[in-house]
Design a protein around this nucleic acid. Structure first.
Length: 290
DNA sequence: GATCCGTGGTC
DNA sequence: TGACCAAGGAT
């Protein structure tokens, strides 16, 4: 089974969103920044921040010269702020070891902090035009439906997923094809209510042909948020993001009533390097009050 | 492989 | 309205 390359590419050419990191003038660094920001964060929230970042830090060495705190603050509320720290660290490695040029080799990219199986191949494909399988949640869902006839993708398995998608890639235009599969999953073959009537591969979709069977895989466990450490860490960090001053612990204590959980979360933020304690015992974003 | 890690929009 | 979802990675 395969997905008709022409149908997918033609649809993409007509329908694709004009996102700044897809423009020909966008650098590999711009692509890398976009891929990190887009991990688990929707396009609409990423775009304005991405524009700020590329203007402020147009090359890796520019970001490496900034403090960690500046980067965490500029990350704003994109979520999962450890990504900002890891991107900052990756920028330093790229400056020091790669002549300020984002590597094009997948294995080299995989060695950089914050870059995993998806991001490494996304950069290789979208920034350097390489024919490598780019597998994100969208692609997994599109392939599950159109190729395997399942309502949704089962649990991820990097090895299997990569081989799966690799078999679909055309010899020419593989990178654009990968972008097209992602766009198809983002705009048409969506998780909740897929717009099958608008789908370019409706006629060859294995899921349609099979009569749209219900999802048969293992039940996915929903992640909670309210009351978790994730929420508390977010609240604590938001206090520090909102001020340029180092603050006493009392300023942090007001965000959560459970002192045990609060302290545990503050400690974990310190361990992660997202928060620093000054010589005077105050708390601040890292690198701004030493 | 399961769990943890933010945040806000949607139906 | 609350559960689900969004271009994952690290451990």
């Amino acid at each position: 089974m395969s997905l008709d390359t022409e149908l997918v590419l033609d649809w993409f050419a007509e329908t694709a969103r004009d996102l700044p990191w897809r423009r020909p003038e966008c650098t590999a660094w711009g692509v890398l920044v976009s891929e990190i920001m887009l991990q688990q964060t929707p396009v609409a929230r990423v775009e304005p921040i991405w524009r700020e970042w590329l203007e402020r830090w147009p090359v890796p060495s520019a970001m490496a010269a900034a403090s960690q705190g500046e980067v965490v603050r500029a990350w704003g509320k994109l979520g999962y702020p450890r990504r900002a720290l890891r991107l900052h660290a990756a920028a330093a490695v790229i400056e020091a070891e790669h002549d300020d040029v984002v590597p094009s080799d997948v294995d080299t990219l995989l060695g950089l902090p914050g870059i995993g199986a998806y991001t490494a191949r996304a950069v290789a494909a979208f920034a350097y035009g390489q024919k490598v399988p780019v597998v994100d949640t969208n692609v997994r869902r599109v392939v599950a439906r159109a190729v395997h006839g399942a309502a949704d993708a089962g649990p991820p398995s990097t090895t299997r997923d990569l081989a799966d998608v690799d078999a679909l890639l055309p010899e020419e235009g593989a990178a654009v094809y990968s972008a097209a599969l992602m766009e198809l999953g983002a705009l048409i073959c969506t998780a909740r209510a897929p717009k099958c009537a608008d789908c370019p591969v409706f006629g060859e979709c294995a899921w349609q042909i099979a009569g749209r069977p219900a999802y048969a895989g293992p039940v996915k466990v929903a992640q909670k948020f309210a009351g978790t450490d994730r929420q508390v860490r977010g609240l604590l960090l938001d206090v520090l993001r909102g001020t340029s001053e180092a603050v006493p612990k009392a300023k942090l204590d007001v965000v959560w009533s459970d002192a045990g959980q609060r302290d545990k979360c503050l400690h974990s933020l310190l361990v992660d390097g997202l928060v620093e304690q000054t010589a005077g015992g105050l708390f601040a974003l890292p690198g701004e009050h030493r």
